[in-house]
Nucleic acid binder design. Structure first.
Lengths: 193, 193
DNA sequence: AATAAATCTTGTCATATGACAAGAAAAACT
DNA sequence: AGTTTTTCTTGTCATATGACAAGATTTATT
């Protein structure tokens, strides 16, 4: 996709003017990653973030027992960023990995910061992304407490069908807070109905 | 506490100048709530938020089965806000309730917004609060998946001892994603060691 | 102080999910 | 195409936690 076309879509409902968009466009650059490549690994400080044009990404953390837990799954159109690392200059606990070959649009923290401080509409739009991530995490967290594993799976299937279709069972399972064994049984049960 | 003294503490490490602080100070007003009073209820849109000077607050949501689940617990110095409701003008799912008599400092969204757009240091500091909330929620969410209930309780006890001392067992339990019965047993077990 | 209400503890039993292991199926690689 | 590696399924058994109910304790109210 052409850069301008893509960014037009990203900023479509933000009220950004075409003059502002002309300032924003040069800050984004297209980057590609190969399947299994890492965009960020544990211990690094994130100095830029990405919008996915095509492909799938997961982020995962390794817990104290060494278990690999998928923290988030991303698809086309999603923004991929570890906010605490980016804004606190803190070494991340996350590993962000390409699940497929990727085409992304990257912006550096420095460029982001400059536009965040100078363009009100950009600021509002980006704050919206952060609040949106917070909201998604909040719903996920409530769901881990309130819902059975089967309900969590059905909810994900409804909200992000392409993720469920394209990501391996074990990653979806740990994202939902269960084992791959359990998710396999849940799928079997759902298929039998 | 005097208003200026309190705000000096809140903005201490934000790089805000004393001229800027003079702009900020008039926007905050002291408000009191009585025990059990609601600061926000389900369905409302949040139009201001609070810093707690003294007292304890909990926010809870009611799930689809009618269960009351504590989403967050707040004590002195904490910022109390439902970000999605505030920034998306969305009816909240949360009920925010005083657990004790409270003294808080309140700021309206409108005043917040004005300063967020005009004072760079205020902007950075407030963005930091949002990212900090995101980070806390992220750790909590990972902990719900990766840790046993006992570990989650011990972690809360270590990070927020005054919360554990001042909030009733059943609220702490649902915050940790377990029943009051289970938490009671965990406490018994810990006492016996 | 007496009473009522809320909170916490403890018993018994049920159940969702995990742990581990073996095979089957699918995907990746040579 | 054949081989290796990864992913998914299924069986058996274990366990953390829940559900419900009855008392005990603490706190609030008259």
């Amino acid at each position: 996709m052409e850069k301008e076309h893509f960014l037009n879509k990203v900023f479509a409902s933000s009220g950004i003017t075409s003059e502002e968009l002309q300032q924003i466009i040069p800050k984004y650059k297209q980057v590609s990653f190969q399947k299994n490549e890492y965009l960020l690994t544990q211990g690094q400080v994130e100095r830029s973030y990405w919008f996915i044009e095509t492909g799938f990404i997961r982020s995962y953390i390794v817990d104290t027992e060494g278990n690999d837990i998928t923290f988030n799954l991303y698809g086309s159109g999603d923004v991929v960023i570890d906010y605490p690392s980016m804004f606190f200059f803190a070494p991340t606990r996350e590993n962000i990995q390409a699940l497929t070959d990727l085409v992304c649009w990257e912006i550096s923290f420095q460029d982001f910061q400059e536009m965040f401080n100078s363009i009100t509409n950009f600021r509002e739009q980006q704050r919206g992304l952060l609040v949106g991530s917070y909201f998604a995490l909040k719903e996920h967290s409530i769901s881990l407490i309130a819902d059975q594993a089967k309900e969590r799976y059905l909810s994900l299937l409804q909200r992000k069908p392409t993720i469920v279709q394209n990501v391996s069972l074990k990653h979806i399972a740990t994202f939902l807070g269960i084992t791959d064994t359990s998710l396999s049984r849940i799928r079997k049960e759902l298929a039998n109905v």
